[in-house]
Design a protein around this nucleic acid. Structure first.
Length: 716
DNA sequence: GAGCACTGC
């Protein structure tokens, strides 16, 4: 097993004299106890192989299935290596994962966590929460955080190694990180950076080729002309101006087995038309045949189908005789209040089987304990951006094979399980191998602005793992140009640089910039609205008639007839002015308290960032609420606020036509005001909207009334 | 008169 440093006492060991014996500190006791379990992980025996691989080559691509221990062990294997003099970054797609991994690794190393002690070696960094110390060596962070760091320091100078985890999820951010890292590997850096790319799927060929291929575009990718401060990066860090070599880079590859229990598969014999009926049938078949304990996890597409099936299952369950165990149906989707989500973690009452009806949230983000049976409908709701129309469509689609296999795996985490697929084996064979990466499905303007901000001028030449269609890139470039985020030459402008550092889409970022102009003078109001538009819907969905009435009266004083933007402003102001019991206020108004808390977090962050980039002089005082409340009801201010939104959303304007429908200025598409809007059913000369989404129809969501006269003033 | 999957700075 080679020379392991793990048995030596780490720094910070406290020795206590106790009857002449040396007692390890509690941290060390815990470390030694955990060492025994670490040695049982499948990855432990690959330790030497992994260290040798990184000694030899700068890139290691590692595939390790669930339970291999890769996320916790790899950083520790690397840390003691002579080449690793700087920090190690480990990226995660989700905040909770970054924090819990940091906590675990700190325990395993016997070091305090993050900012709790200046001697701490392990920390984390996620939005709204950073916990590091001067001696942090291993930092777990979200992909978005690493990208932000890259905008400030394009060479990532403080790191010796970047570990990119969960690459198989293929978020836009991970694709950007991989592209930037490929460029960085080809550049001349003080010390070469080492990269470990980790994926849970066995297919890592594509990623290996990506890093191995010669980089003809190196010049474009690494054509830094300045870092975030506008300074030219010193000669030592200056990337080579020509491809370093036409040869392939040597890549190490390692496969680590997982630790999963076997899962038995079952398919339908013939295809079904009625997925609800098929699910209902299968749930009761499992329930009546299979012994207890053993909970069930059913993968569905969305809130509506989940609640529909819940009703059916509960009705049928009442007809079961007392010989059978009881059924407890638990819905699970992201919009569900936190407390209701937590119910899946509580043990079921005696003689009761839990049946969890879930969206894709249970595929990756939430691990449901106690599951032995998975029922997979084979469907998922996917968002796809349509470049031609500038519209998001949200449609039910077939899942991919890799998604089907991931769902199946959810039955084998605690013991052998079973997976029932509500489609035929032939249908499985026709599924796509992988889910379409997000970068091929989204509006590219944010990604492209980040690339520009990091110094990639020729974005068409950026090394994408899967290049998005040219049409989408061109659309995004055009939009950035319209926003004034790019110069006519295509380089990033000062405005663009400011926008790129805001945690917002370019459109919303542009609105902030506009509102900060002295003649607009409505930055704080605009920040409140932008904060609402960048979090989940603050207004709760209403499903009963009484709730509707209650909402109607309670929300009355918040509604603004000009539209949704000013209504959101009124809601934030009222919530912020409530000092006694905000949760109760939110409940009374049928407003999501969770959403309002995020609004307040975002608001605080945006204010801080606006001060930093000199858009705002100083933090607003505590006494501002009354004065600004008066302003917010002032018509001239309201007009200026909406004009700021027009500047960022010039493509999202529609005018009323003689037939009573609204048609977009750009593209002449018919749009319907979404029924959740305060403008629903109203006819105004023109509307501005936040989002254009196709579900059953093309809807404008987040809409406000604007005047054609204003458009002429702004756009000429 | 709809009902939006899921992350993240």
């Amino acid at each position: 097993m080679g020379s392991l440093k793990e048995t030596q006492p780490a720094n910070g060991v406290k020795r206590k004299r106790d009857e002449g014996k040396v007692q390890p500190s509690p941290l060390q006791q815990k470390r030694l106890k955990l060492l025994a379990t670490r040695k049982l992980l499948p990855i432990w025996s690959h330790q030497k192989e992994i260290r040798d691989a990184l000694k030899e080559n700068d890139v290691l691509v590692l595939s390790g299935e669930t339970g291999s221990g890769k996320s916790t062990q790899i950083p520790q294997f690397i840390l003691s290596q002579p080449w690793c003099t700087g920090k190690i970054a480990v990226t995660q797609p989700r905040r909770v994962a970054a924090i819990s991994l940091a906590r675990r690794v700190a325990e395993e190393m016997g070091t305090p966590l993050g900012s709790s002690s200046p001697a701490s070696k392990v920390g984390y960094s996620v939005r709204f929460d950073e916990s590091t110390s001067p001696s942090t060596r291993i930092k777990f962070l979200t992909e978005g955080m690493l990208l932000q760091e890259m905008l400030r320091d394009a060479t990532l100078g403080q790191y010796s190694c970047i570990v990119v985890d969960e690459v198989h999820e293929r978020s836009v951010n991970v694709d950007l990180i991989l592209g930037f890292l490929r460029g960085l590997l080809a550049s001349k850096r003080k010390k070469p950076i080492k990269v470990v790319v980790m994926s849970a799927t066995a297919d890592i060929q594509g990623i290996s080729w990506f890093f191995a291929a010669p980089s003809p575009s190196v010049e474009n990718v690494e054509n830094f002309t300045g870092n975030a401060n506008g300074h030219t990066i010193g000669t030592e860090e200056t990337p080579v101006k020509s491809p370093i070599s036409a040869e392939e880079r040597q890549i190490s590859i390692c496969h680590v087995e997982g630790r999963q229990y076997p899962v038995k598969l079952d398919y339908l014999a013939s295809p079904t038309e009625d997925i609800m009926e098929a699910a209902l049938h299968r749930i009761f078949q499992i329930h009546c045949k299979e012994p207890m304990p053993g909970d069930m996890l059913v993968f569905m597409t969305g809130q509506e189908t989940i609640q529909g099936l819940q009703k059916l299952v509960e009705e049928y369950a009442q007809g079961l005789t007392a010989d059978y165990p009881k059924i407890l149906v638990l819905p699970l989707f992201a919009a569900l209040p936190q407390a209701a989500q937590q119910r899946i973690f509580q043990p079921a009452p005696p003689n009761t089987r839990k049946v969890i009806l879930s969206t894709n949230i249970a595929e990756t983000s939430v691990t449901v304990p106690g599951v032995r049976f998975v029922v997979d409908t084979g469907k998922v709701k996917v968002k796809q951006f349509r470049n031609r129309l500038g519209l998001d469509s949200l449609l039910v689609k077939q899942i991919s094979k890799s998604s089907a296999d991931q769902r199946k795996g959810r039955a084998g985490r605690e013991g052998p399980g079973q997976c029932y697929r509500l489609y035929t084996q032939e249908a499985y064979q026709t599924l796509e191998r992988d889910t379409i990466p997000e970068i091929l499905r989204c509006d590219l303007s944010e990604a492209i602005l980040k690339m520009k901000a990091r110094g990639t001028d020729d974005v068409l030449g950026f090394p994408f793992l899967t290049p998005p269609p040219r049409e989408g890139m061109e659309r995004a470039l055009l939009q950035l140009l319209q926003l004034g985020a790019l110069e006519d030459t295509g380089r990033i402008s000062e405005v663009g640089r400011k926008i790129s550092r805001l945690p917002l889409t370019p459109s919303l970022g542009r609105v902030i910039i506009e509102a900060a102009k002295p003649e607009m003078d409505c930055l704080l109001e605009t920040i409140d609205i932008v904060a609402c538009l960048s979090v989940e819907n603050i207004f709760l969905n209403i499903d009963t008639e009484e709730a509707r009435e209650q909402a109607q009266t309670a929300r009355q004083q918040l509604l603004r007839r000009q539209g949704d933007h000013l209504t959101l402003l009124a809601a934030v102001r009222a919530y912020a002015a409530e000092h006694s019991d905000r949760r109760r206020w939110a409940d009374d108004h049928l407003i999501s308290h969770r959403a309002m808390q995020s609004v307040m977090d975002v608001r605080k962050q945006l204010i801080a960032q606006c001060i930093q980039s000199k858009l705002l002089d100083k933090a607003p005082g505590n006494d501002r609420s009354r004065a600004t409340e008066d302003r917010a009801t002032d018509e001239a201010t309201q007009e200026r606020i909406l004009k700021c939104f027009l500047r960022g959303f010039s493509n999202n304007i529609a005018r009323l036509c003689p037939d009573g429908s609204y048609k977009t200025f750009v593209g002449n598409q018919t749009v319907t005001i979404h029924p959740s809007s305060v403008l629903f059913g109203r006819k105004v000369e023109a509307i501005l909207y936040n989002e254009f989404v196709f579900t059953n129809k093309a809807y404008a969501r987040g809409a406000s009334a604007v005047q054609i006269r204003w458009l002429e003033e702004i756009f000429g």
